[in-house]
Design a protein around this nucleic acid. Structure first.
Length: 286
DNA sequence: CAGTTGACAAGAGCCGTTAA
DNA sequence: TTAACGGCTCTTGTCAACTG
């Protein structure tokens, strides 16, 4: 059977690209998305007589426009107050008390705002920059779930968030599993015999440096799961769905190949494009 | 010293649960 | 029934530290 390492000499053929938009093409979309929010912001600063009261008036508005107005508020008035701080409405008085003195004065905001071109493409581009954060990972898991559905249909049970949502906690699906280990995919026989614990990640660039020393974290997961499988004599395996151009950087490919080797057949690492060849019923049942 | 790797922090949005 | 909350997941820009 082919291993992940066997694909190493032609990685670019086996990774999946999730399309991103080109500059400046997305500026039009920016105008469509944020044009009216910026207008609304203009109206609000127009009638506001203080920075505090501007924040209060924004907070009274319904979502989703409130969230977008808060982003602009952060840019113009208060880079200090993070998303999390402004998220909870009832904390607003405390935020104003503790950070209000650092808000830029409303008069200055009015001047700065007026000095900008209308529409302010630069600001819209900045806002756009964050719009799709996190989406690519969801595309990946969704693609996997769709693939699994078309290939195996209802032959197996599969759990996990198809896009956003709570991970599968292993202590909820595996008896006597001790820690709260989150997984992205969990596959079992219709009789509930667990077959696969899966983890997914899309890497646009670098090798997922966010999770400190990911390869050894992955190895620890593998060790725990395989030990569990042995203890309870289960056909349980570990699956890593990894994709994206970041996979071709640095030592990533080798690291994952080594991880697969370490699993001695109980671990598989795949990109979406390898699924047809590798993610077979034979492996599932092994 | 140039290139590579590592670490940190930021920020958006979805979702289940809770409160109104 | 709806809105708010809190929790969680995910990507990415930037700079520091390391390495040969």
């Amino acid at each position: 059977m082919t291993s992940f390492g066997d694909y190493k000499n032609r990685p670019s053929q086996y990774i999946t690209f999730v399309d991103s938009e080109f500059y400046p093409d997305y500026l039009d979309e920016g105008l469509a998305l944020y044009g009216s929010v910026l207008e609304q912001f203009a109206e609000l600063i127009d009638i506001a007589n203080s920075s505090d009261s501007l924040l209060r008036s924004i907070m009274e508005l319904p979502d989703p426009s409130r969230t977008q107005l808060l982003r602009i508020f952060r840019k113009y008035l208060s880079p200090d107050t993070s998303v999390e701080m402004l998220k909870v409405k009832k904390n607003m008085p405390i935020i104003i008390r503790d950070y209000g003195h650092r808000f830029r004065k409303i008069q200055e905001v009015k001047e700065k705002f007026a000095s900008r071109p209308k529409p302010d493409e630069a600001l819209m581009a900045i806002l756009m920059e964050y719009k799709d954060r996190g989406k690519k990972g969801y595309e990946l898991t969704e693609a996997f779930f769709l693939w699994f559905e078309t290939h195996f249909g209802s032959d197996y049970l599969i759990q996990g968030p198809i896009r956003a949502g709570k991970d599968v906690l292993l202590n909820k699906v595996l008896k006597n599993w001790k820690s709260q280990t989150p997984a992205d995919i969990f596959i079992s026989h219709c009789d509930r015999t667990p077959l696969v614990v899966g983890f997914a990640r899309y890497d646009t660039d670098r090798g997922g440096a966010q999770e400190d020393d990911r390869t050894s974290a992955n190895k620890a997961k593998v060790t725990d799961i395989l030990r569990y499988a042995e203890t309870y004599n289960l056909p349980l395996k570990v699956f890593f769905l990894n994709d994206g151009p970041g996979l071709t950087l640095g030592s990533m490919w080798n690291d994952y190949a080594a991880l697969e080797e370490y699993g001695q057949g109980r671990v598989m690492v795949c990109t979406l494009k390898m699924l047809d060849e590798r993610f077979t019923k034979d492996w599932l049942e092994s």
